[in-house]
Design a protein around this nucleic acid. Structure first.
Lengths: 151, 151
DNA sequence: TTTAATTCGGATAAGTTTGTCCGAATTAAA
DNA sequence: TTTAATTCGGACAAACTTATCCGAATTAAA
């Protein structure tokens, strides 16, 4: 009927997470990276990625520097402090934390949809995972060639 | 930046689940229900809902009858057998069971994305929830006014 | 047999997300 | 000071999802 609905995250969010992870990895080695390099490394459309990086920079997740030898960077000490939840929030807002699984305007403990209780459980686990996973966690396997940001 | 990304399910899926639940509830009382009534009860756009019901009927989740006094129905004995996973699958396909959290084409145990392990855990819980929740489960609270399909 | 209620199903429109283009602003280096 | 590399940011285009419209097919009832 429709195209496959495959997104726990939006594309913007996927790119944001992958870009942040790559930037974090390079930042740990004191390397600043350009938009072009990032897009290549995470296999994402350049201009679209630019907007997402800009958004992340505005939300103080990344530092951006214009001009030659400019690019994006994350303060070393922040690589561990920054969690997936921060990245997701900067791009998609607090959507993951609110909203009814069946799309009801007002759905809560008092007047829940039939799926409410079961849905809340799953979402809280997602929330917890996002809040306890840092950019540092995501970089760990990359160096060793255990994990990948493209393919 | 973008609109709030609020969907664990697509709208089509939300309507499909709510409609199936309402039809199940009425079917338990041997009532066949019309598209119009369904759309009203679940607060969904009529024509769009028609397409989703049609899709569910094609996948043998619903029985549909044309003509006056026609409408949609679910065999009583199927109300408990039909799980959320069946409804979701009929509308969105197997998306929930496949696909990488970060959108990689090839992401698996051997060559995972950095989020793979944590993502798989969450998704398996979602999968399990969908597979063990029946339409009967969803109807239980509706009669008693404990749960709601609109508002 | 006719009528009317209903689902079926294609065409099309509207809205959102994703993606592209291009010039402006910034800034390091020549 | 000029040049060139880069991010910034708006306008626009493409793709996908959601939604509407309307006629065809079906069928129970008048």
């Amino acid at each position: 009927m429709y195209q496959i609905h495959n997104d726990m995250f939006s594309k913007a969010c996927e790119y944001g997470i992958k870009a942040s992870t790559y930037i974090a990895l390079q930042s740990l080695q004191d390397k600043r990276v350009s938009l072009k390099e990032i897009a290549e490394e995470i296999n994402s459309p350049v201009a679209f990625t630019a907007k997402i990086l800009h958004q992340l920079a505005k939300n103080n997740i990344l530092d951006s520097v214009k001009g030659p030898a400019g690019g994006f960077q994350i303060e070393k000490e922040n690589v561990e402090k920054l969690k997936l939840s921060h990245v997701v929030f900067a791009i998609d807002g607090d959507s993951i934390y609110s909203g009814c699984g069946l799309g009801l305007e007002k759905c809560n403990e008092q007047q829940p949809c039939p799926l409410h209780d079961k849905f809340v459980i799953i979402r809280n686990e997602l929330k917890q995972m996002l809040e306890e996973t840092s950019l540092l966690d995501l970089t760990s396997g990359l160096d060793l060639g255990i994990t990948f940001l493209k393919r």
